[in-house]
């Protein structure tokens, strides 16, 4: 199989805005933003490709209190992922181009991906016609 080439580099949060600008200036294509929960916060991965051959993954370590600058003013397609990361992980991203302000996915559980175990519904969901979803206590630590 022809070898697939990808790179992983770590950068500090302070360099994220300059990285996005340099990618825009060199004409790189934006691919993806996603987050993963780690022991002391989150790791955001920004993926670009400069020459359509090598996939460059740039990883930024953030905590729940950090304010992350949005790259969607430069790459409009990123607004989907920035809203998603904000809603599902609770990461604070400032300046999203099309900001749904927490309402992108209307789910009743706060930041479900940031909780280590499966979070149960915090409040009973009202359904007519007899079936109700029972309220269960959260297992493990609070978020």
């Amino acid at each position: 199989m022809a070898a697939y080439q990808d790179t992983f580099t770590s950068i500090p949060l302070s360099e994220l805005a300059t990285l996005a600008q340099s990618k825009k200036d060199e004409g790189a294509r934006f691919i993806n933003i996603h987050a993963a929960t780690v022991a002391d916060g989150f790791v955001l991965t920004y993926t670009f490709t400069s020459n359509e051959t090598v996939t460059d993954n740039c990883q930024v370590h953030v905590t729940a209190d950090d304010v992350v600058p949005a790259i969607s003013p430069l790459f409009l397609a990123a607004f989907v992922f920035e809203n998603e990361v904000h809603d599902l992980f609770g990461i604070n991203i400032e300046g999203i181009a099309v900001d749904f302000k927490g309402d992108f996915y209307q789910i009743s559980i706060e930041t479900p991906m940031a909780v280590p175990t499966k979070p149960e519904h915090a409040t009973a969901v009202n359904t007519k016609y007899g079936a109700t979803v029972p309220v269960k206590q959260r297992k493990g630590e609070e978020q």
């Binding site: 996915y105 789910i107 559980i109 479900p112 499966k118 979070p119 969901v125 359904t127 007519k128 016609y129 007899g130 079936a131 979803v133």
Partner: peptide, 15 residues
């Protein structure tokens, strides 16, 4: 069924 955003089948909403 075990996903956080799934309540269950359609009988949760209508008969």
């Amino acid at each position: 069924k075990e996903c956080y955003n799934t309540l269950g089948g359609v009988d949760m909403a209508i008969p």
